[in-house]
């Protein structure tokens, strides 16, 4: 394949699917998920499209770019903490935050260039798909149609499901940074990621509900527990497959964040794809590990909730700043 300008959508998709399928965020009853899916896609798509359009104007503001970059560092630290928590749960005492941080950030060194990042993202997404199929196939014998919940659901359930599907991940906002410079005919379709995200969420919920039934809400790491149920020939437990997939996905996510930070802070306005320097890589690595070390005193759930609120706030600021900037430009043109 010729090294033409690369498409980073597979990485965005991988990051989103990883968050949705493996973090347990998408856990709602399937019926609720199906009922609210269309509305969630429309709302998320509208928000993504608006942010995408507003960033063309608001992106010129240095402080806003720095804020975005800071949030990406925070998101990176959160990913690291979440991965560390899962490893501590799976193999208590075998790993440390620093060890995992160093291991995860090492490959990012080779993913600073757009070509390597895009190609690795493609392969990682393919591996992720194969791994998920393997895990689903290995647990197929335990899936029971009778596990689907049929109890009556009230309006609170639908609202809760919608809220869960509207959870804002950094990947929804990143197309504005990654594809913002493209011409109008090549613009990024804003509904693509929300559609995939919501569908994947519903599908994963369906599988988990078929596997766990009514016990689903009480399980701490549903995807990990489901993987541990996997049986393939003489292999009795397959949670290591899930752990490896998640580690690979976190590496690619961290590399994407560094790439986006490169575009936001170091290479903004320069022609060609941004590529983080070795210095920027080192700074990013230190910042992510240090921030994760500082934040590990907080509960992961609280941290993730704060991150989501901060992203929402950033989206609102981008919309307002973009709107004001656009209005000012139009007024200038009219004069």
């Amino acid at each position: 394949m010729k090294n033409d300008p690369k498409c980073l959508t597979p990485i965005l998709l991988l990051g989103l699917l990883m968050d949705l399928l493996l973090s347990g965020r998408a856990v709602v009853w399937t019926r609720l998920g199906v009922a609210t899916a269309l509305l969630a896609v429309l709302l998320l798509g509208a928000l993504c499209g608006a942010v995408y359009a507003a960033w063309r104007y608001a992106g010129a503001c240095r402080w806003l770019r720095l804020l975005f970059a800071a949030l990406l560092v925070l998101a990176g630290a959160t990913q690291l903490l979440r991965l560390n928590a899962l490893y501590r749960y799976a193999y208590p005492g075998a790993t440390s935050l620093l060890g995992i941080g160093l291991a995860v950030l090492l490959p990012v060194l080779y993913l600073r260039q757009e070509g390597a990042l895009a190609q690795t993202g493609n392969i990682a997404l393919a591996l992720f798909g194969v791994g998920c199929l393997l895990l689903v196939g290995s647990t197929a014998a335990r899936l029971r149609i009778t596990n689907l919940q049929g109890a009556a659901l009230g309006p609170a359930g639908y609202v809760g499901a919608l809220q869960s599907q509207l959870w804002l991940y950094p990947e929804y906002l990143l197309p504005a940074v990654l594809y913002g410079k493209q011409k109008k005919e090549n613009q990024y379709p804003p509904f693509k990621l929300p559609l995939w995200g919501v569908l994947a969420g519903v599908a994963s919920t369906l599988l988990l509900e078929l596997l766990f039934g009514a016990a689903l809400p009480s399980i701490q790491n549903p995807a990990h527990t489901a993987a541990a149920y996997g049986q393939l020939s003489v292999f009795n437990r397959l949670e290591w497959v899930q752990l490896m997939l998640w580690t690979v996905a976190v590496v690619v996510k961290l590399a994407l964040y560094l790439y986006a930070i490169g575009g936001l802070v170091f290479c903004y306005g320069r022609p060609g794809p941004p590529a983080a320097t070795l210095g920027a890589y080192a700074g990013y690595g230190v910042a992510v590990v240090l921030l994760a070390a500082l934040l590990q005193v907080f509960s992961l759930e609280v941290l993730v909730a704060y991150q989501e609120e901060a992203l929402l706030l950033l989206a609102v600021v981008i919309l307002v700043a973009g709107g004001v900037q656009c209005g000012l430009q139009k007024t200038k043109r009219q004069r």
Partner: peptide
Amino acid sequence: VAGVPGFACGAVVILAMSCGAAIFELDYLY
């Protein structure tokens, strides 16, 4: 040293190297 994450990250390093080893703007994994 790091167990499962070490192995997975080592594999990604090799994958990333192979993806980034372009010469004359041609993808090494073609």
